[in-house]
């Protein structure tokens, strides 16, 4: 059985008549990079604030490292580092002083400051005032502060928000390397589906305060029906071949034909279609089996047509 670092059990949070979290169950396994997705207002930040003990849910239970957050707040939060929303640092202090403030409050050894700075590659800029940092540097310093106490769980709320493409790439590399370098489990929310797809091993989907999916990325992609995409000319003749093979309604998408019948879409059937099309004199320029990407899966599950933030 996989150890669970963070778990939410039937967590409900209401703001007046609005239910931000509706009996949310989540389980973040140890060693995972857990991507937390949901449209705007889905309740992601509320869930993170509950997990950090900043909000007390009206119902349900949260456990971190086996400690109940309500009954045992200090022990539960002792194994957590977090960057919530913007990297909130004291701009009048240097990076090192910012870390030192947190270090003193946590009562940990000064040597851990240099270790944390090393992890995020910020040693050289550590003695400059944070007010002079770029957003990317602030993100790194926020991450260093979250890593200061060698947490078992790292919570990152939109860690690439506002960064330029190079900054996003750097931050992504940094996050990807963290589980191996620190042993921390990562729980991150992001509005960038591609980012979650590239980084995460596990995914949680939230909409209207309810969990639509909680599991591995593979399990999520398996929920989607594979599609066979065929580009062949002449397209009418190719369609005729497919109809004679039993597909009444292949989908037309320009010069492409798309088959979505779940029972028929196997690699073996794809190969037999290819042979049949060749025999019928069709010129096949593309024939591939495609599983839906995370965005398509997300849109399907949420019934959403806009941004997936």
């Amino acid at each position: 059985m996989t150890d669970t670092v963070l778990s939410l059990h039937q967590v409900t949070q209401r703001y007046g008549k609005l239910t931000a979290l509706d009996a949310v169950d989540l389980a973040i396994p140890a060693g995972a990079i857990y991507g937390f997705l949901g449209p705007n207002g889905a309740g992601k930040t509320t869930a993170i604030r509950c997990a950090m003990g900043l909000l007390r849910p009206q119902a349900g239970r949260i456990e971190i490292g086996g400690h109940d957050l309500t009954r045992n707040r200090r022990q539960a939060l002792a194994s957590v580092g977090a960057v919530i929303e913007t990297p909130a640092l004291f701009p009048n202090l240097t990076g090192r002083e910012n870390l030192d403030v947190t270090r003193r409050m946590l009562g940990i050894a000064p040597a851990l400051i240099d270790r944390a700075l090393e992890l995020v590659d910020m040693r050289e800029a550590a003695d400059r005032r944070v007010g002079q940092y770029s957003l990317g540097m602030k993100q790194r310093m926020g991450l260093a502060r979250a890593l200061l106490a060698e947490p078992k769980l790292l919570i990152l709320d939109e860690p690439t928000n506002g960064l330029d493409p190079a900054g996003i790439r750097d931050m992504r590399s940094l996050i990807r390397a963290l589980p191996e370098r620190t042993g921390a489990t990562i729980f991150m929310s992001s509005h960038l589906l591609s980012e979650i797809e590239q980084l995460a091993t596990h995914v949680g989907l939230l909409q209207h305060g309810r969990v639509l999916f909680d599991g591995t990325l593979d399990a999520l992609s398996r929920q989607q029906t594979p599609r066979l995409i065929i580009t062949a000319a002449p397209v009418a003749q190719a369609e005729q071949v497919l109809r004679s093979a039993g597909f009444a309604d292949p989908i037309h998408e320009g010069e492409r034909l798309i088959l979505t019948d779940p029972g028929a879409i196997t690699p073996e059937r794809a190969a037999s279609f290819n042979a049949a099309l060749h025999e019928a004199g069709c010129r096949v320029s593309e024939l591939r089996l495609e599983r839906a990407d995370l965005e398509t899966t997300f849109m399907t599950l949420t019934g959403h047509t806009g941004d997936a933030a």
Partner: peptide, 17 residues
């Protein structure tokens, strides 16, 4: 000092009473 950079979330999420 806390309101400006919105550091409350960090400060109050520390395992300190």
């Amino acid at each position: 000092l806390e309101h400006g950079p919105d550091t409350w979330s960090h400060t109050l999420a520390l395992p300190v009473p």
